[in-house]
Simulated scan of single mutants.
Amino acid sequence: MYKEQTAPNGTEGFYRLTFYDISKSGYKWVGEWVDKSESVVFPTWKINCTRNEK
């Protein structure tokens, strides 16, 4: 998922959410800023989600 967002230094780019390692036991996702060519990537956070069975 992408949303247009300018970096603090004025560079045009996107804020990107990427979901990965998706399985029945959970998934991971990362939020990161990327430039328009996606050659510069600046991760801001990572989240690991684990399913709890009750």
Rank of each mutant, 00 (worst) to 15 (best):
M1D: 10
M1Q: 09
M1T: 11
M1N: 11
Y2E: 14
K3N: 10
K3R: 11
E4K: 12
Q5F: 11
P8H: 12
N9W: 01
G10E: 03
G10A: 03
T11A: 04
E12I: 09
G13D: 01
G13E: 01
F14I: 01
F14L: 05
F14K: 01
Y15I: 02
Y15A: 01
Y15P: 00
R16V: 07
R16P: 02
L17V: 13
T18I: 06
T18E: 08
T18G: 04
F19G: 08
F19E: 12
F19Y: 09
Y20P: 03
Y20K: 04
D21P: 12
D21V: 14
S23P: 11
S23N: 12
K24I: 15
K24D: 15
S25K: 14
S25P: 11
G26I: 06
G26D: 07
G26Q: 05
G26M: 05
K28N: 03
W29P: 07
W29K: 06
V30W: 06
V30C: 13
V30M: 13
G31K: 02
E32F: 05
E32K: 04
E32D: 08
E32I: 05
W33Q: 00
W33V: 00
V34M: 02
V34C: 01
D35T: 03
D35L: 02
K36F: 00
S37A: 08
E38A: 04
S39R: 06
S39D: 05
V41F: 07
F42Y: 04
F42C: 05
P43K: 08
P43E: 12
P43I: 13
P43L: 13
T44R: 01
T44K: 01
W45C: 08
W45T: 07
W45G: 09
W45P: 05
I47W: 04
I47T: 07
N48K: 04
C49W: 06
C49R: 07
C49L: 08
C49V: 10
C49A: 08
T50D: 12
T50S: 10
R51Y: 15
N52R: 06
N52G: 05
E53S: 10
